[in-house]
Structures are given as structure tokens and as C-alpha cells.
Design a binder for these strands. Structure first.
Lengths: 336, 336
DNA sequence: GCGGGGAATGTTATCGATCACATTCACCGT
DNA sequence: ACGGTGAATGTGATCGATAACATTCCCCGC
């Protein structure tokens, strides 16, 4: 009579608990109007049968899934990768699963196809980690009725965005160096088309100007240690350079190495501050003073914005800015 | 009469095309018994309405989702991160979405909870990226009726596993150094509890033994440049060291730096080979000879094993081994 | 003691697909 | 001309949950 080990459905639970399936549903959804005793009986039946609600059935009738789609660049960079895992963690805590769609480049068509795949899955919401302006165009591809949050995106896009306060972070780094007594601070930046880079450049420049310090020429690179090394080789040759702010820790590593090769000691001859606080930053030689971004906070903020949109709440906040903070180690000292 | 912009369902398409919903379903699933003319009409209706099949409804009736769950360690290491994006790509091509569940440590309870979340989502299959033996215990947590494939897992576990042939890769690296004329090769390994590390150690040792070369003591580290540097400082002090095989490129980077600081030139004084071929390896100084793992092939193999299990095919292959290959650059030369 | 009201529970329709099973249709051979 | 056959299409049940609505139950006040 009974099917061989079909996974139990709500009615099975109901039968065992001696109630109707609707009551089981109410217990599952924490409806108030269920007698405590019944609730306990139902819970017991659920446990006994090892019942799991069928998400597909639920999604079918409610019209929304428990899936959040993430669009991210196919990248092994520390920032994006951390972002993804932190978001997954936060979403899991809220009962959502995360479906990733990676893309090689953040251009319009790639994003469009990934977004399409996500919509196909009927995701409840979308998170786009969009560090460059070209990703903005992809906005048009996303229908208005799907909740969307951007991380690291263009604050001026009109869509909800969560960002780290790059300017504040860069400002803190720069100020830290100035306060140590350096007359000015050089900057090795990331790719200028990244919002992150732009913000850090802006924060650095503004802090120098406010302090009345001269603004040296900008050295811009990609995010790699290799380019940091290249920039470092230039800097090492110039005796007037005593303080460097690198846009990420890998760049800083490259600079560190170049300085070392030229016999310029850190921090005695040159002070340096990085950005990111990658796990190994504390093991650089010397341990690197750097700026930590609270990826976890960003992830949670993004999630809460997304959940807010799902509940069609009036968007209280459309742009959340998470402050980074300086992690002081041993790579900064007063000038000689 | 008509609801405001409810997303169209199969019956809407059917009505527009002048057929029954069942015919639409047949067109969607490429059933043979549909007249070409009808098929075209239906396709046109689908396009006109911008219809997307409701996955939830489909999943409900067929009992299987189009979701594959991936369990991976919360890591920003190059290998695991690459693996994930490559797998996502492959799965997308096959019409599957990928839900990630990351975990801080590969211990029993963490894995169990992530697996549980995935089962909750009724994933069609699971991929576990399990580089360490402790992950094995989590096997017990996974019910037998859900398809599972391990990547980098224990070949002896009895479950389908896809691995890179670490021994072959390590052998190639070691042989390359021996063939350049070095009398033996030192090895800086990764954590010994990783299967990957164990395989590389084994390949290195065996190749040396077969060549009748002496096997120097093993230097084991984690995967970081910091520990590579530490190992490098030891190696740099020993003039008899002329060839080093590092278990990954970051370790190699650390070794490189240590050697450089001690004035030992690469490759003139010491030759070195890495593993992974991270994007920046070609920009190391000197450009690093290394071993590239075909993550894409691994991902595709894992997917096909998984799809095979879903079709309940007799498991033709339970263990697929993907060969890596040596990428020769400038960090190896004959001994002085 | 009876009507009222809210809490607790049950009944039935519904979501949008697939599946199993009709049914219709066209064409063929005898 | 007629039955047979397979292709093309349609009909109704079904999956497992939630939602809307109906019903029962209990307690309270007058």
C-alpha cells in the first residue's frame, strides 16, 4: 500500500500527528493560532518522519523561491572571493540559499546572460558585485520587479548599493602616515575604472590637500604584486619618497620587495600602508599596517536591503556605507 | 479580466498558439511527436509572451530540481576558488544552477549542516570539494539516494572522485629539474593532511628514488608565501641546494624572495618549479616554471559523473584522474 | 441559557508544470 | 471502403505546499 520510502509529505505528518495538513503548515510557518500542545505533537511527528518541506511546492504557490542569485566576476582576488563567502553565510542564516553565476568580464552581454539564468531559476533577489562602471549598463537588463542590490557598485545608479567607505579608509591610511611625520604620501592605486580604486584615490588626494601636503603623481597599476613591484622599483629610486599607500596588500607586497632589493628599509627609510588585510599581511616582512574592510558587515547589509525590498518595504536606505578600519602593525615609522 | 502583468504560464502560451498546454510542454521538452509547423507556432508564442517555464512547478512534479549543491571550504586560495567558478560554468552550460555552501573548516559537523541545507533545497546532486581526510567522515551524513561527486577527495572512499594527478604533476616537475642536470631536488610541501600535498610529496619522492637520487628532508608548510619565505631562508643558507620544487606558486614566491635576499640568483644558482600556474606566475621574477592543473577539465569530469549518477547509469568510472602539465618558463637552468 | 467573538482547526481551491491515458487524424494495405 | 497503425494532439489527474474561507470549539457577559 505504501510507496517504498517516498520522502514524507505534509499529509503524512498530519496523519501521524492526528491533525490536518493545514495545521502542519501553520506550525511550520509559526502561525500564532495553534495550541501549544498541538504544536508539540506536530513537531514530534515531523522529527519522527524526518520530514522536510518541499521547497518547490512552496515556491510554486507562494511565487517566490528561497534562492538568491549572485552575479560576480570570475575572480580569485581576495576581496570578491571573501565577499561571496560572507554573503553566502549571511544568507544561509536567513534561510536562503545562494546561487552563483560567475562571469569573466563585467560587460553588458555576459551579465545579461547570467542574470537571465538567474531569472530562469526564479530567484527571489539578485546581488550584483559590480566593481566597474561598465557593469552599470547591465542595470537595464534587470526587470524592475526583481529585488536587486549592488555591492561595490555605482552609488549614483539609483539602485540600492552597499559599499565600503573607500575614501574614509584611504583617508585613514594617508592620515596615519602624515601623523607619523611624513611630509607627503605616494599612492600606488588599483585599476582606475574600479569604483574601489577611484574612492581610494579620492580619499588619499583629499586628505593630502586638507593637510596642505603636496600631492605627488599617481602610480596606477592593476591589483597584482607584479605591478606593485614595478611601481616599487620606481619609488625606491627616489630618495624623497618616505611614505607609500598601496591600494591593496598585494601591491604593497610588491612595493615592499622592490624597496628591499634597493636596500631601502621598511619602516626605517620608507613607511608603507596597504589595504584589505589579507590573511598573510601579518606575515609580511615587516608585518603590514593596512586597512580592513568589514566584508561580513557589507554582506549582511546587502542581505538586509534585499530582504527589505522583497517585503516591498519603502526603501529606507538606498545606499549603505560600511566604514573600514585601520589595522596598525609595523610598517610605519617616522621619517629618518 | 486579465491580471496585471502576471508572468505568463504555459496555458497562456497555449492559448496564443491555439494548442493545448500539453503540446507546449512537448515543444519545451523536445518531444519528437510534434508537427514542425505547430512547433514553430508555439515557439513564436513563447517568444512573443516572453514566457519562462516555472522551474518550481516542474520540480514539483518531476521530483528533481535543476540545482547542484557545492560544498567548499570558505577559502580564497587559488585552486579552490578556480574550481568553483569552473564548475559553475560547466553546470550552467548543462542547464544547471549551482548553489554554494561554504564552510570554514572541513570537519564533520560543519559539513553536515551545509549538506543539510542543500538537501533542504532538494538539490539534484552534490559536489564536495574535500581536500582533507577529515571531510571523509561527512560521507556518512549524505544519504545514499542523492548523487554525490567528490573533487580532490580520497580515492579510496568508494564514492566517485575526480582528482588531478598530483603524483604525475610532481613527477614532471621533479624530472624536469633532474633532467636539467641537478643531482637532487628539495621540496617545500603544502599541509600534509591535504590529499593534494600528499600526492605531490609522493610523486616527488618516487621520482627521485627511481632516478637514484638522494631524497632530501621534506620542508612542509601551509600554502602561504609567508611560509615559503621561511622555508626559503633555510634553503638559501645551504649551498648544496640547487633545485627546489614548491607545492604551489605562492610558496615558490616566498622561496624566490628569500633566495633573492641572500643573493642567490634564480635560475643561475638555484632552479625552482612551482605548482598551480596562478595568473601572476608569469610575472614573477623570474617568470616561474610551474605545473598547471586543468581545473576546467576537472569540473567538467565531475559534472559528467554527477549527471551519470542522476540518470542512474551504472557508474562507468568511479574515479577520474585528470593529468596536469608542465608550463616551462625561466626559473630552471642547469646547475653552475 | 443564549448569543457573540475569537482562537483553533479543517476543507477545498490553487499554483504551473509533467505524466498517463484518451482521442483525433492521416495514410496505408487489402 | 474499411480496419489498422502510428503520429499528432488533447484531457484530466497529480505533485506538495499555501491561501481563502468555513467550521468547530470554548469561554464570557448579560
Amino acid at each position: 500500500m505504501d510507496k517504498v520510502s517516498r520522502s514524507p509529505a505534509m499529509t503524512d505528518v498530519a496523519r501521524l500527528a492526528g491533525v490536518s495538513h493545514q495545521t502542519v503548515s501553520r506550525v511550520l510557518n509559526d502561525h500564532p493560532n495553534v495550541k501549544e500542545q498541538t504544536r508539540i505533537r506536530v513537531r514530534a511527528a515531523i522529527a519522527e518522519l524526518g520530514y522536510r518541506p518541499n521547497r518547490a511546492a512552496r515556491a510554486l504557490v507562494t511565487g517566490r523561491s528561497q534562492l538568491i542569485g549572485v552575479v560576480a566576476r570570475n575572480s580569485t582576488l581576495y576581496g570578491p572571493a571573501s565577499m561571496l563567502t560572507e554573503f553566502e553565510q549571511a544568507a544561509a542564516d536567513a534561510g536562503f540559499a545562494v546561487s552563483v553565476g560567475s562571469v569573466r568580464e563585467l560587460d553588458r552581454s555576459s551579465i545579461a546572460s547570467v542574470v537571465d539564468r538567474h531569472l530562469d531559476q526564479r530567484v527571489a533577489g539578485l546581488v550584483v558585485i559590480a566593481q566597474v562602471a561598465t557593469a552599470n549598463e547591465a542595470l537595464a537588463e534587470i526587470p524592475g520587479d526583481v529585488p536587486v542590490v549592488f555591492i561595490d557598485g555605482d552609488p549614483g545608479s539609483g539602485r540600492p548599493v552597499v559599499t565600503v567607505d573607500q575614501e574614509a579608509g584611504a583617508g585613514a591610511a594617508t592620515r596615519h602616515l602624515l601623523e607619523a611625520g611624513h611630509s607627503t604620501v605616494w599612492h600606488v592605486s588599483g585599476p582606475v575604472d574600479w569604483f574601489d580604486s577611484a574612492g581610494r584615490i579620492q580619499g588619499w588626494r583629499q586628505t593630502l590637500q586638507e593637510a596642505g601636503a603636496e600631492v605627488p603623481p599617481l602610480l596606477s597599476a592593476d591589483w597584482s604584486a607584479a605591478e606593485g613591484y614595478r611601481a616599487g622599483q620606481m619609488l625606491a629610486r627616489m630618495p624623497e619618497v618616505t611614505a607609500v599607500f598601496a591600494a591593496n596588500d598585494h601591491l604593497a607586497l610588491g612595493v615592499l620587495r622592490a624597496l628591499h632589493e634597493r636596500g631601502r628599509r621598511v619602516p626605517q627609510d620608507v613607511s608603507i600602508v596597504g589595504f584589505d588585510d589579507v590573511p598573510e599581511a601579518a606575515f609580511f616582512i615587516p608585518p603590514l599596517t593596512t586597512v580592513r574592510q568589514a566584508f561580513g558587515d557589507v554582506a549582511r547589509a546587502a542581505l538586509s536591503l534585499l530582504l527589505g525590498q522583497m517585503r516591498t518595504e519603502p526603501d529606507t536606505a538606498r545606499h549603505i556605507v560600511v566604514p573600514p578600519h585601520l589595522v596598525v602593525r609595523d610598517s610605519v615609522a617616522p621619517p629618518a
